[in-house]
Design a protein around this nucleic acid. Structure first.
Lengths: 205, 205
DNA sequence: ACCTGAACACCGTTCAAGT
DNA sequence: ACCTGAACACCGTTCAAGT
């Protein structure tokens, strides 16, 4: 056997990632396995290891693609010229929608995945930064006058918080007697946090 | 073979949970397997299935114990008579410390775990409620005058946010150029959110 | 050069059979 | 009644061997 060259290395790479995404979409992250991916694209498991270091490597790349899609989705949902609280809510609601409609894929973004204790790949950090950047930009209006460092911190704090609400809601860890939507809770967070930050800023001037 | 009765069913149950916790502490959640747990307590895998429905059942019970320990830890770190912002920060810092020192165990609390799409066990919900209850109580001072429903919602929003910051920090998903501690970010959240909620409340009266 | 097939060391779960 | 041992259907990863 051996030697088919039906596909280039790059093609196999892309096919594998697509197959992996389909598996995750259909059965959650538990449904993802190297053997299943290989079977789906019509190659042997061994071939996968010609193109990925290991399954973790494949997951990083899959997550990278998810971050790209998420970033684009956030941009699409942002009304032109929107800024401040309005923009923040649009971003947050788009984020919630993404998490709710593509739950498995979204969930993988923040799972351990780094089975090793090493740092994230730097290109992954950069993709994360692009997402946070949208929030930072939307905060620029409401927090005008804050130093850039505070602005940066505030955007990370706010977005990690939105993520936390989203996560616990989807994982059903919130112990709420129904009624509350993720959107309502997020709204409470954004309005509260923003009002508080503005007050504290003006108290200083 | 068969029939040893060195231990009662209940004893095997406890031994297994202890062994599972040790495995997780040593090697993360990936190091947990039914076969390893069985080996550690000196029984065959089959025996484990006499005492647990499956591995997921074991994980739920392990998480239940973790929630108990966490709840106690939070109470211990709360100064007697502390309330309001002071109490909230004590709770949050204790939570962060727990997450940082018992990362693997803590992380399992919010992973999928419900591979099935069913609801959480009701006793698990109740344990979660006990933890949120501490936050709700601490918020009672600062948000005096709010209706109970708003208070309840605010406590969930705030704690989910603290969790989100904690999670993204530990999973290194925050894209921060160092310097910022989890505590500093959490402090920004608590102070901001509290100030905002108080302002909005007084604006209404 | 490219890919396979088999091997290795693991999994979770079940259940007939032993004591 | 309690526990075992073997079986079944899976894993991730490696690598000699085939074309």
């Amino acid at each position: 056997m051996g030697r088919r060259s039906d596909h280039s290395r790059e093609e196999i790479h892309q096919l594998a990632l697509q197959a992996a995404e389909a598996l995750v979409a259909e059965g959650g992250y538990q449904a993802l396995s190297a053997r299943k991916v290989a079977r789906r694209i019509g190659y042997t498991v061994g071939t996968l290891y010609l193109v990925f270091d290991n399954l973790e490597d494949l997951v990083w790349q899959l997550n990278g693609r998810t971050l790209d899609v998420l970033h684009q989705r956030l941009i699409d949902r942002l009304s032109q010229g929107a800024s401040g609280e309005v923009a923040l809510k649009q971003l947050a609601f788009a984020y919630i929608e993404f998490a709710q409609t593509q739950t498995a894929r979204w969930g993988m973004l923040f799972e351990y995945a780094g089975g090793s204790e090493s740092d994230l790949p730097e290109w992954y950090q950069e993709k994360l930064g692009r997402v946070f950047g949208l929030v930072e930009q939307a905060l620029q209006g409401p927090l005008a006058g804050c130093d850039p460092n505070t602005l940066r911190r505030a955007s990370r704090v706010l977005w990690a918080s939105v993520h936390g609400i989203c996560l616990l809601r989807i994982r059903q860890r919130l112990d709420l007697a129904g009624g509350q939507t993720t959107e309502e809770m997020t709204q409470m967070l954004i309005e509260g946090f923003l009002a508080g930050m503005q007050q504290r800023r003006s108290a200083r001037t």
